[in-house]
Structures are given as C-alpha cells and as structure tokens.
C-alpha cells in the first residue's frame, strides 16, 4: 500500500517536474480576450493600392524628420543637423549644415516671390536659408513650450506668408516673409466654433492648398480643418473620421502628416498602423500608396514597447508630377511612389 503510494508519487512528481516551464516561450496562456490584435487592420486589400514604389533615396541620417519638395521638384530632407538636397532624379546635389536639429521644413515653390527659399523649423524657431544654403535669418524664438512640427508656404502671386504649426502651443503661427509674426490661427474659440487643436503627441501638420486655404490636421479629432489665411474657420470644409477601417484615420491621433497633391487632393500619413493614403479634394477616400507591409516590415513593431518610445513616423510630400515621396526614418530612406495607372496622377 505504502509502496504503491510512494511509487505513484515518484512517478507523478517526475512528470510534474518535467512540465515545469523553464521559459516563457509557450506564451502567457491568457485567453483570447487578452490579445491585442491589429492584424486584420494591417492587411490592406491589394485592389486599393494604387501606387508602386519606383525608387528610393538612401539617407545617411540617424534621425530624419521631414521631406519637402521645392522648385523643379527638388527634394529636401531634414534630419540630424542638416538638410540634404536631391534633384528630381534623386542625385544628391548639396547639403546644408544646421546648428541644431530640424523638425520640419518647407521650400518656397515656383510661384513664390522667392522660389527655393528654405524655411526650417527648429524646436522653437524658424530659420531661413537661401536656395544656395546660406542662412538668411533666424526668426524669434517661441518659448520653452514651443514644438514646431510643420511649416507651409503660400505660393500664390499675392500671398507669400509662412505658416508654422506649433504642437506645443497647439496653434498655427502666421509669419510674413520677413519673419514678423502676424497672427495665431486655430486657438479655441466658441463663437467661431473652433474647438482648438487636440495634439496628444508632437505630430501636427498643415498644408496650403491650391484653393488658397490653409488645411490643418486636428489629430485628436482625426480630421483636417480648413482656415482662411486670416484664421477664419471654414467649418463646412472639414473632413476626416476616426476608424481603423482603411478610409478613416486610425488610433488616438492621426493623421500624423499630410501634404497637398498637385491637382488638388491630399496624401496623408498615419502613425501606429503606418499607412500612406490618398484623399480627394473634398476628403473622399481614393486609395492607398503604401501600408504596413512596406513601411513596417517587422510585423509586431508597432504594438510593442520601443526604446524611448520613439515612433518612427513617416512624412510625406508630393511633387508636381504627382510622385509621392515617403520619408521612412526606420529604413533611412525616401521612398518614391508613382501611380500604377498613369491616369491616376492627373485625375486626383
């Protein structure tokens, strides 16, 4: 009796010991309800992908921040402490050394009074460089709290003002070309129905569209708002909605970046699930440029904790030929996308 009990106990004990987990490789064993799964939202219907990658510019930047297009479709990339300038073919032309780390940049277009003039947003001020790379001006500092995340230049014949998005103050600053700060746009105002910009993280983009309006992303509300240069809120022109579905903007605050397409319409870039998409001039969803399979090939990266919580967020720009430039900081390159169907370029 005792013998049997002992032998049985030895046998069970041996089996039990062999089943003691020695690593976490088997996973947490938590039920399905504990999974956080974005897989279905990360796969994009191939039919919606209207662009293909036609080339790429490798960057020797450890932190690249912004991409912009200037006259003659020159490509400007800001990062580390410099600006790299490429011609439309992707040949590196020059490099402008900066004294601090740039956050954003804009280049005066062909229609501008001073085409090729480069406006570089540092954390708390704007610096102006000539087309040859000489520094022309350093504009006033905006204070401790300022975090400039985007700049846009008005290119029409009579307007040459510069707009800088300040995520820290949650407002857009308007400057004249001499650097005089003229006004603040987008501050919360009940009468004008301006809810104010909700900016939970330092991603706050704006663009000047061909219709002479300033389009500003309100990331916390997942929408793109329209303002006149004088700061008047154009409520009917607001578009965008929150959704993980492909036609909406995902996550807590998106899109992170946006650019105007030459023929009207927008190209947007989202963080979280990195996807670059095209919208029409009135905000209707047109199609996808690139999704997570291209922009975040390490499938799990976005859901997991990252060192320093630095999200590698892509920036976008579009050139006059309708090519879309996607700055992919994780891969350290600018990817150049062209439409699969050449008709697309003119249509959108």
């Amino acid at each position: 009796m005792i013998g049997i009990a002992v032998v049985l106990a030895v046998a069970i004990g041996a089996v039990a010991v062999s089943r003691v987990p020695r690593s976490g490789d088997a996973g947490s064993g938590l039920p399905q309800r504990f999974d956080y799964d974005l897989k279905t939202h990360k796969t994009i219907d191939p039919a919606l992908i209207l662009y293909r990658q036609a080339g790429e510019l490798p960057l020797d930047l450890s932190a690249s921040r912004a991409v912009a297009v200037g006259p003659e479709d020159r490509i400007y990339v800001a990062g580390d402490q410099k600006i790299l300038v490429f011609d439309r073919e992707g040949t590196r032309r020059s490099e402008i050394a900066l004294e601090s780390e740039p956050r954003c940049l804009a280049v005066g277009g062909a229609g501008n009074k001073e085409p090729g003039r480069i406006y570089v947003g540092m954390r708390d001020h704007v610096e102006v460089y000539g087309p040859d790379g000489t520094r022309q001006a350093v504009w006033e500092r905006l204070g401790e709290k300022a975090v400039l995340t985007s700049i846009a230049v008005a290119d029409s014949a009579d307007e040459h003002d510069i707009f800088a998005a300040d995520a820290g103050h949650r407002v857009v600053h308007r400057y004249d070309p001499s650097g005089k700060r003229l006004a603040e746009i987008g501050r919360r105002n009940r009468e004008q129905k301006i809810r104010g910009f909700i900016i939970p993280s330092p991603y706050f983009d704006l663009a000047v569209t061909a219709d002479g309006l300033l389009r500003v992303v309100n990331p916390g509300m997942h929408r793109i708002e329209a303002y006149t240069f004088d700061g008047h809120f154009e409520e009917p022109l607001v578009w965008g909605k929150a959704s993980l579905e492909i036609e909406g903007f995902c996550g807590c605050c998106n899109p992170a970046n946006m650019a105007a397409m030459p023929g009207g319409g927008y190209v947007t870039a989202e963080k979280g699930i990195p996807r670059v998409k095209i919208y029409g001039a009135d905000g209707n969803f047109v199609g996808v440029v690139a999704g997570p399979d291209v922009l975040a090939p390490t499938a799990t990266i976005t859901e997991e904790t990252r060192e320093d919580h630095k999200l590698e967020v892509v920036d976008v720009a579009a050139d006059s030929r309708g090519r879309i430039l996607v700055l992919d900081p994780a891969a350290r390159k600018v990817r150049i996308f062209v439409a699969r169907n050449p008709q697309m370029e003119t249509k959108s």
Binding site: T302, E303, T305
Partner: peptide, 18 residues
C-alpha cells in the same frame, strides 16, 4: 498585469501606460 492596454497605448499613443 496582462499588459493589453500597454500594447494599445504603444501602438498609437505616447507609451504612457507601462
């Protein structure tokens, strides 16, 4: 301590939950 919210916060947000 299942960390599901940590994943959610990291995926899109600032990573303030950890």
């Amino acid at each position: 301590g299942c960390a599901k919210c940590v994943k959610g916060c990291n995926a899109f947000g600032n990573g303030s939950l950890y």
